[in-house]
Simulated assay, not measured.
Amino acid sequence: MQNKEKNQTVKGTTISASEEPSIETLPSNCFVSIRGWENQDEALEFSRDVISLTKVLSRILDLSRLISIVIGWDYTEALASVDCRDDIPSAAPTSNQYGQGGAMAIPMVRNDEIWSNVVIWAGLVQQLNQPDHSDHKLALQTFVHELVHVHDLRLFTRTYPGGWRAAKPRDGRDANLQPIVNPCQSEYSAQRRSAWAAPENGLDLLEMLGKVMNDVEGQIRSARLSYRVYGDMDK
């Protein structure tokens, strides 16, 4: 039996949901931090709109382990503001041959559970509460993309046999493959599930991901050669 759908609207953003939506999963103590916004009244209004939208999305995504959403004009400073304590190193902006990152879901451990903090450069989402703006859909897609990372991590920690601490590489081969495979799978999932927000641009990141996967074969050949030379899987 299929549920009929109705739309929920938050500040002009329409989100399709079932007629009997599930309960909100966002923790009551989750907070939004807006950093570097010149007009404090605008920053306060924006933070309220962000938390309202997140509550609606938490009926679709499991955001029960989301601690905070940090949106700042200085992305490096915004990342540094997240206190991951001693268990996970401080995050740094992603920068590689494929592009420069401006948004990230940062994990941290609390009471032996993995929680998430979402950090986004303000320039990517400043139109999140402006539905008539030409960049609104892209802003929404970026925001949903990061929340999907939170959802996927929660799904992993809830369902992995033996708990998340049991998720360790079986051997040196696994240890080398996981840093390649896991990010690709994570980005594919997040982009695919957020593409509805901006259908005309939804495949952009997937095309970049395809290029990354095409490059994997060359990386494997390079790693094999290195192993033959050094006999060490860690080199």
Results as ranks from 00 to 15, higher is better:
Ala190Cys: 08
Asp171Pro: 00
Ser194Ile: 14
Leu206Phe: 03
Ser116Val: 04
Ala105Phe: 02
Ser47His: 06
Leu128His: 06
Ile60Leu: 14
Tyr188His: 09
Gly12Ala: 04
Lys6Gly: 00
Leu147Tyr: 08
Ile67Leu: 02
Gln178Glu: 12
Leu209Met: 10
Val70Met: 01
Arg192Gln: 12
Val150Cys: 11
Ser16Trp: 10
Tyr188Lys: 10
Asp74Cys: 08
Leu153Arg: 15
Gln97Trp: 13
Gln219Cys: 08
Trp115Gln: 02
Gly123Cys: 04
Asp62Met: 01
Ser90Gln: 13
Arg221Asp: 14
Ser68Lys: 07
Arg192His: 09
Val181Trp: 08
Ile51Lys: 09
Leu138Gly: 15
Tyr98His: 05
Arg165Ile: 00
Glu146Asn: 08
Asp83Ser: 12
Pro27Gln: 00
Ser22Tyr: 12
Thr13Gly: 00
Val82Pro: 00
Asn96Ile: 00
Tyr75Thr: 06
Ser58Trp: 06
Cys184Ala: 15
Asp86Leu: 11
Ala195His: 04
Arg154Leu: 01
Cys184Asn: 11
Ile220Glu: 06
Trp37Leu: 10
Arg158Ile: 00
Asp112Cys: 03
Gln130Val: 05
Pro21Tyr: 13
Val144Ser: 06
Cys184Pro: 00
Glu187Gly: 07
Gly210Lys: 07
Ile60Phe: 02
Gln127Trp: 02
Gly72Asp: 04
His136Leu: 03
Thr14Glu: 12
Met233Ala: 08
Gln178Ile: 15
Ala223Cys: 02
Met108Tyr: 07
Ser68Asp: 09
Ser95Tyr: 09
Ile60Thr: 12
Gly72His: 03
Trp164Gly: 04
Gln126Ser: 11
Lys11Arg: 15
Asn214Val: 04
Leu61Thr: 04
Phe31Ala: 08
Ile51Glu: 03
Thr9Gln: 13
Val216Met: 14
Ser33Trp: 01
Thr142Met: 05
Val10Gln: 03
Pro169Ala: 10
Val212Phe: 14
Leu61Tyr: 11
Gln141Ala: 12
Ala195Asn: 08
His133Lys: 05
Ala17Ser: 05
Gln141Pro: 01
Ser189Asn: 15
Cys84Tyr: 03
Val109Trp: 02
Ala175Ile: 09
Val10Ile: 15
Gly36Gln: 05
Asn129Ala: 15
Pro179Arg: 11
Ser33His: 06
Glu20Tyr: 04
Glu24Lys: 07
Gly12Gln: 09
Trp115Met: 03
Asp232Val: 15
Asn39Thr: 04
Arg110Thr: 11
Gln191Tyr: 06
Gln141Trp: 01
Gly231Cys: 10
Pro161Phe: 05
Ser33Leu: 06
Leu153Val: 11
Gly36Ser: 07
His149Ser: 10
Ala166Cys: 05
Ser116Pro: 00
Ser189Trp: 06
Arg35Ser: 08
Tyr160Asp: 02
Gly172Met: 05
Lys235Phe: 14
Gly72Phe: 03
Glu207Lys: 13
Ile120Trp: 00
Ser58Val: 07
Ala198His: 10
Ile88His: 01
Trp37Gln: 10
Glu19Cys: 02
Ser64Gly: 13
Leu203Phe: 06
Leu57Tyr: 11
Ala43Arg: 07
Phe156Gln: 07
Trp115Ser: 01
Arg59Cys: 11
Leu57Ala: 04
Val148Gln: 02
Ile67His: 04
Arg193Pro: 00
Gln2Gly: 00
Val148Arg: 02
Ala122Asn: 06
Arg35His: 01
Ser90His: 10
Asp234Leu: 11
Asp204Asn: 15
